[in-house]
């Protein structure tokens, strides 16, 4: 197994916090702003930010097609957090258009506006661990298809789900000091059970 080559989409949003999380693990992650910078990556984080803006920039700089192509070719594992998770899912009829990679549909800003944002310690069943989770204008998972699996819930709400080569959190693991989920993402054998053919990492 070769070493992971990790990138963080850095067009807009909290990419710096993800880069710092990887740095704390001794992983030298790189910023991705262009299609060329996707070359050679095995792992990509799509960070939280404004999903309409990130969609706009993915189209503008022609990254969307290449991310979808490399993922579908089984070459690129993707971890979406908050707006990154929204974009990985399927369309719900509301903007922005989604990448349609993850077999789930997420609704934007489903908890309300910023005054409704919150932090909560949640037990992540699949990881057998507790994590302080920061929810900021967070989405809710509205549908989970047969190609996706719920790894953790907060009450009734699915907050961490996976698919073949895909990990998606509705909260912000990059905003707390615990790099548990960044470590987890780099070990797809732990969460990638849905489609064993996917061979990243």
């Amino acid at each position: 197994m070769s070493l992971p080559v990790v990138g963080v989409l850095a067009l807009q949003g909290a990419s710096a916090a993800h880069l710092a999380a990887f740095a704390s693990l001794g992983v030298d992650a790189r910023e991705v702003r262009s299609r060329e910078q996707l070359t050679g990556l095995t792992h990509l984080v799509m960070p939280g930010g404004e999903s309409t803006t990130i969609h706009h920039l993915l189209e503008l700089f022609d990254l969307r097609r290449e991310i979808v192509r490399r993922h579908r070719a089984g070459e690129l594992a993707i971890f979406g957090t908050c707006s990154g998770a929204i974009l990985l899912g399927g369309d719900d009829g509301e903007p922005p258009p989604r990448l349609g990679l993850l077999d789930a549909v997420l609704e934007r800003n489903a908890y309300g506006r910023q005054v409704d944002s919150f932090t909560r310690v949640v037990r992540l069943e699949a990881l057998d661990a507790e994590l302080r989770c920061v929810f900021i204008r967070a989405p809710k998972v509205r549908e989970v298809g047969p190609g996706a699996r719920v790894l953790a819930r907060d009450g009734d709400e699915a907050i961490l789900i996976s698919g073949p080569g895909l990990l998606a959190a509705t909260f912000h693991p990059e905003l707390t000091d615990d790099s548990l989920l960044h470590t987890y993402f780099l070990r797809p054998e732990l969460w990638n059970a849905v489609a064993p053919v996917f061979s990243v990492g």
Partner: peptide, 13 residues
């Protein structure tokens, strides 16, 4: 932390 976290979501914009 939730307030500052939201400010970080606006970075690069």
């Amino acid at each position: 932390e939730v307030k500052v976290g939201f400010a970080r979501m606006l970075q690069g914009g």
